[in-house]
Design a protein around this nucleic acid. Sequence first.
DNA 1: AGGATTTGACCCGG
DNA 2: CCGGGTCAAATCCT
Length: 351
Amino acid sequence: MTFQQDAKLFDVLAMGYHLNTQLQALLGRPLDSLGQQKVMAFSQELSRVFEKLCLLGCGLCLDCLITNIHRAVARSDSGEVLTPVKKSREEGVTRKEITASPYNDGYEWRKYGQKNIQNCNFVRYYFRCSRDRRCEAKKKVQQQDGSRGQQLPPMFEVTYVNEHTCHVLRAIANGDAARMAASPRTTNPYRDLGVVDTARDGGGGVPFDDLSSSFPRIGGGSGSAQENETIVSCLADVIRGAAPSPLPSPWPPAAEAGARDPAAASYVPPPMQASAGHSASVGVAEDGGAMTTTTTMMIDDTDFCWDPSSFCAVGEADQDQLMMDHRDMHVDVARLADTVWPRHTSAGAWR
DNA sequence: AGGATTTGACCCGG
DNA sequence: CCGGGTCAAATCCT
């Protein structure tokens, strides 16, 4: 990836960071209908921007990110959530979790059954790991009754049964020890773009606490965790109040699809306008023979950097497409900024 | 054509 | 016998 591309990529990331700060401010007070519309627009636009970032191969695992955000939402909303590990009667280790996003948990699942459960308004769905037939990991998904008819996103109880062994099996098959910590995947086109090691996470994909490993470090040094917390918190707030992500997903099943998105009002962003000005610089240093690169950006008063080595390389053949995607991405960001960032309202077409 | 999903039938423990 | 979990044939989707 060229410096120019890096800079544009960072441009978008910086914009997203700043946007989240704005969002946090917006969400810090009660929302009227206009505010709710804005929040929904944020969510949709952010999803699109992140989607493009993933398509650009920046190494952000969108699925993992969204999954973690949903989990953050679930935790903050329900006060829940992970139950202690226990042994079920006839199965292996089980673990329960309440989540607004039972589908994007970073693993590939194949539905093998559904059942009407007594005293439940929603059917229960049964999934097993589809990554390797020998993998015994399963999960049950049960939408909670309390979520019916509310404006809040529906919540689901997900019961994970058995540990994933698919990554181990695959590593053995490949004779590749490095893959023993293979990444979880989901059934979506971004599956190979970027991943997070969740080998220690039994059935549930990426633990929320590991989000920092799937998100570019912002702030650098010891302050990055707090910065990331801010970003995650803000994104969680956005998704909590808005429509689910537009990612292709096996969920929800057709019968449930209508009930899942009660606030799916359409929103057309205003025309794109001017972007903010900011600068970027790249520093390269030798570190015991290994070249390390840090990138520093100055956005207003916020100076933050991260290690671009976490991004995937992009082949030369894709450069043209990349540039087009970058342009689209800037359009998205501009629209986004125009929606929420008042100082972006200066006249004139945006690039 | 092959994989994923659907759905009624079947199994099994309480 | 009942209810939860799984199977497997039919169907759908790509």
